[in-house]
Design a protein around this nucleic acid. Sequence first.
DNA 1: AAGGATATTCAACAAGCGTTGAATTTGCAA
DNA 2: TTGCAAATTCAACGCTTGTTGAATATCCTT
Lengths: 220, 220
Amino acid sequence: MSKKAPSPKSERILDVAEELFALHGYDGVTLRQIATGAGVDVALASYHFGRKLDLFKAVFERRALELNQSRLQALRDYQEAAGPAGPSLEQIVEAFTRPLEIAQRDGDSGWANYLALVAYINNSPYWGPKMMSKLFDKLVLEFIAALRKALPGASDEDIFWCYQNLSGSLTLALARTGRIDKLSRGACDSSDLGAAFDRMIPFTAAGFRAVCTPQPRKKR
Amino acid sequence: MSKKAPSPKSERILDVAEELFALHGYDGVTLRQIATGAGVDVALASYHFGRKLDLFKAVFERRALELNQSRLQALRDYQEAAGPAGPSLEQIVEAFTRPLEIAQRDGDSGWANYLALVAYINNSPYWGPKMMSKLFDKLVLEFIAALRKALPGASDEDIFWCYQNLSGSLTLALARTGRIDKLSRGACDSSDLGAAFDRMIPFTAAGFRAVCTPQPRKKR
DNA sequence: AAGGATATTCAACAAGCGTTGAATTTGCAA
DNA sequence: TTGCAAATTCAACGCTTGTTGAATATCCTT
């Protein structure tokens, strides 16, 4: 029912659902809107994917594996290139973020919508804990382990809190994929993931160092 | 119709709406759920606030002024205490964030829900641009100006991008207000804004310095 | 060319939605 | 106490929702 070979129309449904869910959230989209957008009868979505919630999950899961494999591969590449000391903080954050930019730039146009959907889910108190952990925890723990190695002597507590900062910056950047920011009046284009990452990487690396490097001075 | 003195029940409606909108978003909540939660007939919400969208806006606007005034006051205090050089990066970020923690800790219990609602709106590609700018742009530009002064020689582009990182970290922290994070397995409690800010402030300040301090070495 | 599985549409359902106008209760001033 | 206005409830409306069972179309395999 939701396992097998994708007919062309069933993928159109996923594409449109991806776009609409990313923009309006789960409850802000009706199956009829999705069907209309895909040029398809409303019953077809139920036929292919079951309940509305299952369609939502199918959209969320469709690209997760590919995305995380490319991020993990990027981390592995840096780990191989680096000596036994492991990659630098900059390289770890680079591996965590750049693959998203590459997917958006070089992949099919649905990637921008997908990344915004991940941002929606991750930021939602309702969906976030239920759905993110299932697909992303394994990868995140790999990166945490790499961070731990790059920050000898740091407490797990500090590392996790700093990771939350990275996750938040990334989430907001993904949420704005495809939109323009009025606040900065053209000084920066929020949809430009490349420009965002050019700053996010050194910014975040410096933040980790400041908080997680044990030093003989008091914290606050 | 939405201007005047709050009857006790109309404020119950706002409280319940605040909680439910923060958790499920605008479309994920029905007026009947809100009315039931408030122990009130469904028509009363319309009587006091008009359409559902107006109720949503009323919830969002109720605490915005008070919140931003306390943040602006905190900034002004640091500016007065500092010399003409202006406050440090740490102080600016402190003024931007700590008032939220104080409101959550010392104010009525609805503040946690309100902060999560702000996070929902800010992260939403649909609501964010429409609603955040109206109530928060003025304050943000004040803080940007302070940052500009604390980072002489930095380009506006870099400053805005770094502010996006701060905004993202803050947004995700607010979204998790009141919930626990399974990923860290108890290493950190995502609902503890105080602990979050203890790291976010030095983290962010170091990030700004790394990206926005002009130095004779290349950026990437 | 026939036939069976898969894909798609059609038609309809019961339930829940936001909204509204009229009726009722409440609170307060005279 | 009466009376008026604000607050609240009652009852109902027209519409949309997700879902489903039956009917039709499309695609392969033989």
